[in-house]
């Protein structure tokens, strides 16, 4: 039996669509709630990011509670950057008790790229260990073997970087994540479908679902900035040029067009099991992208 609505969809053969929302910097969640309302019926699940790019924000767990309250299906992003193994287990217990069962297990960006550069980086666990920890809790025991009162059950996901410039070590880690219990993967941004195809040739041997990460670009400048500053992003020059060649003010439109075309191709050619659309900061355009795709 599936643990969550999203897991039920994972187990079906439909084309999956997820997206993500970055919680606000501050206690005013009205805009976020508006976003959730806009997206919840158009996607299979909504990720809530965990201080993405190591910038302090409203928490992922709180954001997922809002998604639940609005009637959406949340995926909680959990990183190892800010919490040790006690806090991570505790947060998963809280999440489960409130009906948040989809967990994306990540190592987390370095503190150095964020806005609290002097903070102590925790990284008590890494993403593989986090997956294993969550799976372990499902046996009714905590990490050290003490019994849990009430056993949680999760639908676990992880991330993978098919366009890494040095792919072999990433594939080794990917396989470790599969063995540790990941059921689905949301990839880092895909900007070249050939690399996705190549990755899928390798990944299809495993019984897991792959959702291709789609990052919506709004301008050539944004693309270049992300290339230079956002961990793991490698945007091809061809796409940067394509964005640079549009009229001023039409960049986002072009970005939506590129993203939609990618999604359409992925779905029509059955390249992987779905897409994960990342438009953090302008989540409102996700329905337009889906419409266009």
């Amino acid at each position: 039996m599936a643990n969550s609505l999203f897991e039920e969809k994972l187990n079906s053969n439909g084309f999956l669509v997820t997206t993500e929302i970055g919680p606000p910097k501050g206690a005013d969640v009205s805009e976020m709630v508006h976003c959730i309302d806009l997206l919840k019926d158009k996607v299979d699940a909504i990720n809530v990011t965990d201080h993405q790019s190591s910038v302090m924000r409203f928490p992922s767990l709180g954001g997922c509670l809002l998604v639940k309250e609005c009637g959406g299906e949340p995926i909680i992003q959990v990183t190892c950057r800010d919490r040790n193994r006690l806090a991570l287990q505790a947060d998963l217990l809280l999440a489960y008790s409130r009906g948040i069962k989809n967990v994306l297990c990540l190592t987390g960006d370095s503190v150095d790229v964020g806005d609290h550069k002097e903070a102590k980086p925790v990284f008590d666990l890494d993403s593989v260990q986090l997956l294993k920890m969550a799976r372990g809790m499902e046996s009714g025991k905590d990490m050290v073997g003490n019994e849990l009162k009430g056993t949680p059950q999760f639908c676990l996901g992880a991330s993978v970087h098919p366009e890494a410039d040095f792919i072999e070590p990433q594939l080794i880690k990917f396989e470790k994540k599969v063995i540790a219990g990941a059921q689905f993967f949301q990839t880092q941004g895909i900007f070249d479908l050939e690399s996705l195809k190549k990755f899928m040739q390798y990944a299809s041997q495993f019984n897991i679902k792959i959702l291709a990460g789609i990052i919506v670009l709004a301008s050539a400048r944004m693309a270049q900035y992300m290339n230079d500053n956002v961990p793991g992003i490698i945007i091809s020059q061809a796409i940067i040029d394509e964005l640079a060649n549009v009229e001023k003010g039409k960049g986002l439109q072009k970005g939506i067009e590129i993203a939609s075309q990618f999604i359409r191709t992925i779905r029509e050619e059955n390249l992987c099991h779905g897409v994960h659309i990342m438009a953090v900061g302008k989540e409102g355009i996700v329905p337009d992208i889906l419409e266009a795709a």
Partner: peptide
Amino acid sequence: TKGILNGPCAGTKNGKCEANKDMDCAWI
């Protein structure tokens, strides 16, 4: 920079670390 034990994170680029582009990625 994260002291992780099971392989590189996805932030490595050109063999360098996401935290400092002058530093080699230990896992690479």
